[in-house]
């Protein structure tokens, strides 16, 4: 297993995702002899996981079953231990596309945070790219480096424990793309500029507050960046479900209105009135938005660094 290469079977030392049920998952590091408790009972790594095919069903000690999944950056994003606020897949997808990331890209990132974006970047730039990630919090930097080793991507990433606003990325003239997710991105723009290859590249800054965007854009313009665009992306979920809609009763009258006939192309399922408090009803297959959703994550500001 590696976060940048699929394998077929679970091996000792792998990090796997246990899918327990609707929106319930957990990551496990597979160690022979170890056990992991789930709500369906224990999973014994040696007998239940090692040698199993990814995607297969695993029966826990209490008889319930779970699936063992191959890790992906997207599964990691929803399962990782939070050390900071993290970037989610919707934003990550756009960052990846808008930064023109592809195999071989050299990327600078700050801060590393919990490594949610880092894993997605590494997946995309593998096998020949490199990520230089800078985190000013020593413990977070160390934790991230450990995760990269566990996930077998350490050869593609350099973690630096320093302040990007003061010391930059530790590299000059090599980056195709720079990503900033720090409280004062405007202070890091000149460092970002120096990190780019001579031919230039793409920059992204993620900020939750519009005031941060304002200041960042001013500095970007000042520093000669072009195509400066700010945008915001949200994901909308559609929960698929069947809903039962009772039909109104206008009373019986010869030649009067029949509400069942007023529905064009009525759905095949019609519920007898007895099941629905006296009203006949139809079942409708539809999708509804969740009661609450993420209404704001952050503004994404993109810019192109022109050739020197």
């Amino acid at each position: 297993m590696s976060f940048v290469k699929y394998s077929e079977f679970v091996q000792e030392g792998d990090v796997v995702i246990i899918f327990i049920g609707h929106d319930s998952m957990m990551p496990i590091k597979v160690e022979s002899g170890a056990q992991t408790q789930t709500r369906y009972g224990a999973i014994r790594h040696s007998s239940d996981l090692i040698g199993q095919k990814f995607g297969s069903k695993v029966t826990c000690s209490k008889g319930g079953w779970v699936y063992v999944l191959h890790p992906t950056p997207e599964l990691w994003t929803v399962n990782l231990p939070h050390r900071t606020q993290i970037l989610y897949t919707t934003d990550i997808a756009n960052i990846t596309l808008m930064l023109d990331l592809k195999p071989g890209s050299i990327v600078c990132e700050s801060g590393t945070g919990s490594g949610s974006l880092s894993h997605a970047i590494l997946r995309t730039i593998a096998p020949s790219g490199h990520l230089h990630t800078v985190e000013f919090h020593a413990q977070r930097a160390e934790k991230a480096a450990q995760e990269f080793r566990d996930h077998k991507v350490a050869h593609m990433v350099t973690v630096r424990n320093q302040d990007v606003c003061k010391e930059g990325f530790g590299v000059v003239g090599i980056a195709d793309a720079v990503f900033l997710d720090i409280p004062s991105p405007w202070e890091a723009i000149t460092h970002a500029k120096r990190a780019f290859k001579r031919k230039g590249g793409r920059l992204c800054s993620f900020s939750p507050c519009i005031e941060q965007v304002q200041r960042t854009c001013e500095v970007l313009l000042d520093q000669g960046f072009q195509e400066i665009h700010t945008l915001e992306v949200l994901q909308r979920m559609h929960d698929v479900r069947s809903v039962t809609l009772p039909l109104p009763d206008f009373g019986s009258e010869e030649g009067g209105l029949d509400s069942a006939k007023m529905i064009f192309d009525p759905p095949s399922e019609e519920v007898p009135s007895s099941a629905n408090a006296g009203y006949p009803a139809v079942i409708c297959r539809t999708a509804t938005p969740p009661r609450e959703m993420a209404g704001h994550t952050g503004y994404l500001t993109f810019a192109s660094k022109p050739r020197d």
């Binding site: 699936y67 965007v213 001013e218 665009h229 992306v233 994901q235 909308r236 559609h238 503004y299």
Partner: peptide, 17 residues
């Protein structure tokens, strides 16, 4: 598993002083 139906909403901004 993990079947989801989604769409994305995107909004661009004018950023000027």
């Amino acid at each position: 598993i993990n079947i989801r139906l989604t769409d994305t909403w995107v909004r661009h901004y004018q950023v000027l002083p």
